[in-house]
Amino acid sequence: MLSLVAQSPSPVDTNVAVSIRDVSKWFGAFQVLENINLEVRVGERIVIAGPSGSGKSTMIRCLNGLERHQKGKILVNGTELSENRKKIDTVRKEVGMVFQHFNLFPHLTILENCTLAPMWVKNADRRQAEGIAAYFLEKVRIADQAHKYPGQLSGGQQQRVAIARALCMKPKVLLFDEPTSALDPEMVREVLDTMVSLAKDGMTMLCVTHEMGFARQVADRVIFMDGGQIIEENTPSEFFANPQHERAKAFLSQIIH
């Protein structure tokens, strides 16, 4: 229903954070994304669920140009993602990403991980960058580890640092690509708590996750993908109580015991 509203001719709508229109993508002969349409409003929290290989990671990786789409249009904060490097970098400055395997830089301290991009990409001076980093490290409750190296922290701590690192660029949108899938079970909670608090602050978030509790708690919409298509899109309460599609039903019965 929301995607119908999105058909308005004006390409730059300041209330729209992400707009995906008829996007398709192939890996060789294999089609990973098939006519994806999705509109995300500013401040909206979207959870993307679906079996592995359904294209959900590929879809959010297209949103900051880590993957290129071959058909259709993607606009992020009004900037269209194309082959143009400048445009890709414009988008990347405004879109933070949190990866499954954290991807922290092991040769840099926690603080340096957080100040690197603000200093080198946004030309912030060191004092300014360290101030911002301290603020966000405090926010993810890890400020006391600022001078350690990533390898000295637990997985959950590393993932919280990765979230802080993304926040230091003051992004307008945050993408999460299975942020808790590589964590030991006892560390999932601390990362989810951090994500919940971000959601409460009004951050626009797109989360690929299997954490259905998180989806219930914070998502405005759940997107269910299978075979490279969005096959169901609903509020979490409706999606969990009353899934429409057979494949969604099968998926939910497998994931919720």
Partner: peptide, 19 residues
């Protein structure tokens, strides 16, 4: 993952290599 981490932070190819 290191390269993707850098790219996601808008770090360009030259700085990605150097930093």
């Amino acid at each position: 993952g290191q390269r993707e981490g850098a790219r996601a932070l808008a770090i360009g190819p030259f700085l990605e290599f150097r930093l």
